[in-house]
């Protein structure tokens, strides 16, 4: 149970239960929690905390804060477990509580946190060996973050959940409590808005200094060695 999870591994994990490795389904665990089984709740926490932390890190800047929000999420889930409709999936319900906490937190710190969409913690992690140059990767992340800043929140949230956190549109619909058609419409709008700002910013950059496509040059203005 106590093995490390990597994002790539968690990314491929759907919000369906039971988990890929087999084991007890979420529904069974929820049922046990309702009967007072703390261990069952512990199992749910361990099942979802990695993915939840990853999502929350998109909203807040540091790992400690994301951890606090994750903790608060699980606590609220526990307190409201009687309100959960067992005929529905548990994962999206949990993420709805978590995402709302993240969004609430962000709104309170408006304009200060979205610029930090990619947390320091993320940048501190060792670079993916498959990506050629960590400096270019960081430059890319910074640039994407700036573009996302320019997108209204309800589009941006869908974009982050779909394209950065790899949730399906039906999962996002369940998380945000909207119809899937609404989510798909917002997703299309969000990608189009992202494209517009991205293209404009790329055009404004000096030739040869485009962040993407990665030209293999070292001419970045940004000091991203950190």
């Amino acid at each position: 149970m106590a093995r490390p999870h990597t994002m790539s591994e968690i990314d491929t994990q759907s919000l369906e239960s039971p988990p890929p490795g087999g084991g007890v389904s979420d529904a069974r665990l929820v049922e046990a929690v309702r009967k007072g089984d703390h261990d069952a709740f512990g199992e749910l926490v361990k099942r979802y905390e990695g993915r939840l932390m990853s999502v929350l890190l998109r909203f807040v800047r540091d790992r400690e804060l994301a951890r606090d929000l994750a903790q608060e999420t699980f606590l609220r889930v526990y307190e409201r477990i009687e309100q959960f409709d067992p005929s529905r999936r548990f994962g999206p319900w949990l993420f709805r509580i978590g995402v709302n906490l993240g969004l609430d937190y962000m709104r309170k710190r408006k304009r200060r946190l979205w610029p930090l969409l990619f947390s320091e913690s993320r940048s501190e992690t060792p670079p993916d060996p498959s990506s050629s140059d960590p400096r270019q990767q960081l430059d890319l992340e910074q640039e994407v973050r700036h573009v996302l800043e320019g997108i209204p929140e309800h589009y941006r949230t869908v974009l982050v959940l779909r394209d950065l956190e790899n949730f399906s549109t039906s999962e996002i619909a369940a998380i945000l409590n909207r119809k899937e058609a609404t989510i798909r419409w917002r997703l299309a709008e969000a990608r189009t808005k992202f494209k517009q700002i991205w293209t404009r910013r790329q055009a404004e950059r000096k030739p040869g200094d485009q962040v993407f496509p990665l030209p293999g040059s070292e001419e970045s203005d940004h000091d991203v060695d950190e």
Partner: peptide, 16 residues
């Protein structure tokens, strides 16, 4: 092009 940038910016693996 923009979509590729967005997806590549997902970041490196967060080890939990």
């Amino acid at each position: 092009s923009s979509q590729q940038a967005l997806e590549q910016s997902r970041g490196t693996a967060v080890v939990v």
